[in-house]
Design a protein around this nucleic acid. Structure first.
Lengths: 191, 191, 191, 191
DNA sequence: AATGAATGAGCGTTCATTCAT
DNA sequence: TATGAATGAACGCTCATTCAT
């Protein structure tokens, strides 16, 4: 069944093309016509590959999640100490700044466009979110998963600031500062 | 004689009523009809008090900003050391958790619904954002305003996590972790 | 009952104040709020004097009609020959150019805002229109009322042109040309 | 493959269908829903062919202008004397009475719904109006273009009367009277 | 598979009219 | 009488989705 593989590939290529536009404008501010234009196909064709605008968005979020987790795992594979893991997470983020800022924009937008009850009941959200947590916990290899969650929260804070604040200043600088803080914390309270 | 004696006060009361709904659903997902229903008035009356949906939203953001800044100033008034200031900021946030989470939802939504150029040119955004930064810098009384800004970024990270992640776990716990981390950092690198 | 007279007087004064605004913007482009502001009263008070916006407009049209007819009758009172009558009608129009152009704007607007069946069934329209025709016929003292109607039609043509065509050129010049044409016609075909 | 092969032609067909309704009710008194119903399509489809209600109206005015000018040119092509030209213009109008009365209603409405400054700055108005003037001047072939303009003003007067006055009496009769008057004038003052 | 014209519910907004004061 | 806040039906218009081709 090579056909199905090709379809899958094409679907993923379309999602990749949609990424930038949705990150820049946000789900609610992009029309299906704009989206189809960006993908280089007709609206009808778009509905052939995705059952709805919302589904396209969800598939994009899911796709991103899988990609991120894979990238992260590969990246921290060789780290041995906690400090090293944290530093590696930092350089990984800094090297892919543009991507992660956009990704944060999309994820935040995704959350804003679901109300609270939807979010807890939404399969895509639960699945992707859980995978993220697990990947972060594994990558940092921390005994306490809540600490892994906390670090991820702070990283997200820096990313959200980049999205929502044009004057936020250097991303690299902030991530390095965060790394230094975490190291100072773990020196004081070794796990 | 008009029914409403103090228009200004009534307008603020309407903003307060709009707060919860906008925090929960987000600007783009609330219609003017829903909003009017929530406020307990007709759409026409709503347009009597606010020139547009956008203006209502902006006034809400501005109103919140003023309130927050005032509250924060009063709260940290008596603090003497940096550690004390940081701790006070933490307990202040924890005590008003529900309010600040909603407030973060609205502010984030405000940023997501404006594209970058709009945000930098939007008077309301610029004004309120600047007041926030200044208030935070004053509250923490740090020599380097960028450090104050960065701490605020991390606090926002914790708040955003509460908004976007219903399973994120205890807000108080995370803020306390953050406080501990900051104290550890400043012990290692005294300012 | 001097009270009633005063009310009547005030109502007419309000109509006079509404005249310019309605002539300039047109019925559909003036809101009741604008109208009330122009009259220097509240919308509530306006509805005390006029049962509806439409009624105000109709009363204005009727009032204008009565005024015009009276003015015209007084003006041509002393004329003896047809040429003299036509010339007098011409100078009368030229001397009151601004008024008649506005009046034409309002009357045309009134007709455009009534559909055909309304116009034939509308009491105000029928009454005012009939008075106009009769006044013109009397003023010109023509044996054939259709000829009077025809002359009035041509005069209206010149007036409408002033309303709808900013480059139409001198009103006086055009009325004089029309007068010359009519005189040439009556020299060739004496009545 | 799209359903409609020739968009341009369909657009003109839609304008033709809109003509009667707009002539009868006037721009301000026809809603987009009514208009769409009259055209036999949905409001959405209407906005597919016309960017706005105003644009539809302007395109209608422009389309009419082109059509009229072409018809008029073809009609007076063979005329040699001024009297012949005037007579031909008259019979041309009489033969197309219903069309020209509606056309006058639309054009007058167009002028009433634009205030003065809009009219002078409106590209459509300027262009169509200029084409009309030129066509009339050419059709009558008068040395003085202002005389051609004035004759057109009188013709418009007769047309407006038909629009605004259901009892105005025979259109043909009035046009014939006008023709006779013009001929009498030019006999007295040959150009 | 692919197109894009067509749909129509629903959007933000307006405004003639009403009515508590 | 007079005010102007309040109403809500209706406006011009948008856009996710469908479907004939």
């Amino acid at each position: 069944m090579p056909k199905i593989v090709d379809q899958e590939q094409y679907r993923k290529e379309l999602l990749r093309k949609a990424f930038d536009l949705l990150a820049e404008k946000g789900y609610a501010n992009v029309t299906t016509r704009q989206l189809a234009k960006e993908l280089g196909i007709s609206t009808g064709a778009m509905y052939h590959y995705f059952p709805s605008k919302k589904a396209l968005f969800e598939q994009l979020v899911e796709e991103m999640g899988q990609q991120d987790v894979g990238m992260l795992q590969r990246r921290v594979a060789g780290a041995t100490s906690l400090n090293q893991r944290i530093t590696m997470l930092g350089t990984f983020l800094i090297e892919n700044e543009a991507y992660f800022v956009k990704q944060t924009a999309i994820w935040t937008d995704f959350c804003m466009n679901s109300n609270l009850e939807e979010m807890t009941s939404n399969d895509v959200f639960r699945r992707v979110d859980q995978r993220y947590r697990q990947a972060i916990a594994e990558a940092l290899n921390l005994a306490d998963p809540r600490m892994a969650q906390f670090i991820w929260t702070l990283v997200n804070g820096v990313l959200v600031e980049q999205v929502s604040n044009p004057d936020a200043g250097g991303f690299a600088e902030q991530i390095e500062l965060l790394t230094a803080m975490l190291i100072a914390y773990f020196e004081k309270f070794p796990t």
